[in-house]
Design a protein around this nucleic acid. Structure first.
Length: 259
DNA sequence: AAAGGATTCAACCGCCTTAGT
DNA sequence: CACTAAGGCGGTTGAATCCTT
């Protein structure tokens, strides 16, 4: 079944917003808030779809939006967070007051991507000149597990861990499950970059482990609490397979560290 | 001054998730 | 549990602007 379009496009305006439209949207939201984006344009008298109004408000009209160039601090924050999280722009933007996900994404694509790449290369060069001994690293690959495995069944089933370093916890579709990531069991050992850990530690307080959806991090130097497990879950009808997207996070960290 | 290539960023698109029924 | 509506997100586009020749 083909899903109906999110809004009726016929007769609705697209393209750049005029000052008058902005004014109407701002006034309406200041007066009524935005409990229902889809109904908003009709009530406000705008010939726009709800999504367009939402985007305009979130990315441009909100009073707390910061304009102007990104500071060096903001740049560094973006680069560090991107190293840890990948293209999770809304999460990254959430840690940078006044910046929107769209801003961060655009800024990354136009300014930071190349800089991050260059920094990474410099880091790698410095590292390789320090270390004469060759270290072979077997990169962790995504693993596929069947939900029919005994350890996956049931609520709040927690695996014994051989090594707390390698415990990853996530909540998947209401099932709070810990996945043992010990080297011999599921995946390669997680090696955390201390600088990344320290940096993230400052950005996420304890309470945030349970907010932002189920997204959270642990910084006791021994655990990653994975938001990522929910990201790439793949299911098929018969086998209910899924992959461990945590490997992506781990891989990013390993890659940064260039062991 | 003009042409055209490069860059920027607002806006759109389509997919995914969540909440409600 | 299935279905639908709505919100939210990341990827992409294209017009406007800037820069170089």
């Amino acid at each position: 079944m083909v899903r109906a379009p999110c809004c009726e496009k016929m007769g609705l305006k697209k393209g750049p917003w005029t000052h008058q439209e902005d004014r109407i949207l701002i006034d309406y939201i200041n007066l009524h808030g935005h409990p229902n984006w889809r109904a908003l344009p009709k009530h406000a008298g705008l010939l726009r779809c709800g999504k367009s109004c939402r985007l305009r408000w979130i990315n441009y009209l909100r009073p707390d939006i910061k304009r102007g160039n990104f500071s060096r601090e903001e740049e560094d924050t973006i680069i560090q967070l991107h190293t840890a999280m990948g293209n999770r722009w809304s999460l990254i933007a959430g840690r940078i007051p006044g910046r929107t996900a769209n801003d961060v994404k655009n800024y990354w694509n136009t300014h930071l991507r190349s800089r991050a790449k260059q920094q990474k290369k410099e880091h790698q060069d410095a590292k390789s000149s320090e270390d004469h001994a060759m270290v072979t690293v077997i990169k962790p690959q995504p693993r596929t597990f069947s939900k029919t495995l005994s350890w996956f069944k049931g609520d709040n089933q927690i695996l014994e861990t051989h090594d707390d370093r390698n415990l990853i916890r996530s909540s998947t579709k209401g099932v709070d499950t810990n996945y043992n990531m010990s080297a011999g069991v599921i995946s390669s050992p997680i090696i955390l970059d201390d600088s990344v850990n320290e940096f993230l530690k400052e950005l996420f307080d304890e309470g945030e482990k349970s907010i932002d959806g189920e997204i959270g991090w642990s910084f006791d130097g021994s655990q990653i609490e994975g938001e990522a497990l929910n990201v790439v879950e793949q299911e098929d009808n018969e086998n209910s397979l899924f992959e461990f997207p945590t490997d992506e996070v781990i891989w990013n960290l390993l890659d940064t560290e260039q062991l």
